[in-house]
Nucleic acid binder design. Structure first.
Lengths: 261, 261
DNA sequence: AGACTTAGTTTCGAATAGTGAAACCAAACG
DNA sequence: CGTTTGGTTTCACTATTCGAAACTAAGTCT
């Protein structure tokens, strides 16, 4: 029915609105949202009221503008702590950052997009969640390709359908075919490159984090610049990165079973 | 109708379930949730299905257990980045941590409870979100009392109604009257103490962060131990803490107006 | 001041979406 | 092989939600 995303039920609509408010990145007034959403005035009004009443949004009575509520932050804490990967990977990321002196990314797949879950920055020791939580494209980032390469066919298909294939740089793989060929190469090689495909001057080496059963749980990458190093030099570190990815995977898996309370 | 919390509409119920899953702090199976929630089987099932379909939950097909979804992490990132206080306060917290060498907390009020939004730890430079996002009681923490003291009457009443007044230590103010008297003292003094009221050996000095109009936006605290310092010594730093709180408030406020896009 | 937008809130009958007891299916158990 | 446990589906009933339209409260303009 709806032109876009099939928001099922009231809950879907409410979450849709929530995303919308989040998308603005600043407090928004009723009419701002009304313009963007194609829900009728009264409906939107009720939706906003419900969300506010539930603490997912807050309405500043002075300016009459909505912002994301604290309940989300609370939920988020749980989500992050629970997301099998992030808390477990923490010490390993620290280690990897220390060893390499480069920027480290930990990412997961989210509907064809890359969601950065944690990050270590060469300069600023532990800078997380100010950057982590962001989303990026899958087809032109190291972590994205590393995950795509090991996705089961149906999931890959679903993910591919959501790629924009925008050409960010001259090196961007801007077609489905080019990407598929690259994914094949990644599987052969065992790790993915980002050869300035997303941003000029930025290169990285990424490996998937996979469960023993082969399920892709996330990806880990070491990022640097062409000014500082080369792909080959980064590649020399691939075995170490893979090793750490394996450790994270192992620990993440062994976490599930002893949950008998 | 419902014995407990008045969850209005389907959205309320869905969010309720979400909280529930978050509360477990680990992947949970259908029946775990069913036991906890008092929704009928079929209803809960549909709710979970919707949430999963929406990406707020993920269902691990292997173990058949639900966990919080990535969409939540994405939303949370936005919530944190947008929560007028947290991102602005970042550099100030760093500064305060450097100056005092103690643990710093930034908190907001969430339905009568204290929600820790950011944290600096004396030992580990920047440890956030692993601790931040947690909630704690308001009546027996420094930040909690600092905020309560400056809440408008109705909000204070609502918050008080939600305090458990559990006696954590011999110093806990375990009654409404004792707390009200203390709040009065805090207003006189301009800052709040935590004199081992929540945990033995832990003391802190907290100040509210208030808008020019007087609205309580959050609170800031410096925490230490009785082994290392005394309340009086902490009190000597109160002016500096207040100063920083004022700076954060000012910057947070000046953020709203230039939003004309 | 009076007329005319603009922004947000409320109403109310019709339509839809949510409800939940009960039936059902599939494993695991004894 | 009958039974329990854990999860999914059905379906008639009804409470919720829908959304056009009416309404209120500020601004603006002339």
């Amino acid at each position: 029915m709806g032109a876009e995303g099939h928001a099922d039920g009231t809950v879907g609509k409410a979450l849709d609105v929530l995303d919308m408010v989040a998308g603005f990145g600043r407090p928004v007034r009723f009419s701002d949202i009304l313009a963007q959403a194609d829900y009728p005035k009264a409906t939107l009004y009720r939706l906003l009221q419900t969300l506010t009443h539930q603490g997912m949004l807050t309405l500043d009575p002075e300016t009459g503008s909505y912002a994301l509520g604290v309940r989300l932050v609370r939920l988020a804490h749980a989500a992050w702590a629970q997301s099998s990967l992030a808390p477990i990977a923490r010490p390993y990321l620290d280690e990897l950052a220390r060893e390499t002196g480069e920027t480290i990314h930990l990412a997961q797949m989210d509907l064809g997009q890359v969601l950065y879950v944690d990050k270590r920055n060469a300069a600023k020791p532990v800078e997380m969640f100010a950057q982590a939580g962001k989303v990026g494209p899958a087809y032109c980032t190291g972590v994205g390709k590393a995950m795509l390469a090991y996705l089961p066919p149906e999931a890959l298909e679903a993910a591919l359908a959501r790629q924009s294939f925008h050409r960010f740089t001259p090196h961007t793989l801007a077609s489905r075919e080019a990407l598929l060929a690259e994914l094949e190469a990644i599987r052969k090689r065992g790790h993915a490159w980002d050869a300035e495909e997303h941003e000029t001057g930025i290169i990285c080496c990424a490996v998937p984090i996979r469960s023993r059963a082969g399920r892709v749980m996330g990806a880990l990458s070491v990022t640097s610049t062409t000014a500082r190093t080369t792909l080959d030099a980064l590649g020399a570190q691939a075995p170490m990165i893979k090793d750490i990815a394996a450790k994270i995977a192992a620990e993440a898996e062994s976490w599930r079973f002893p949950e008998q309370v």
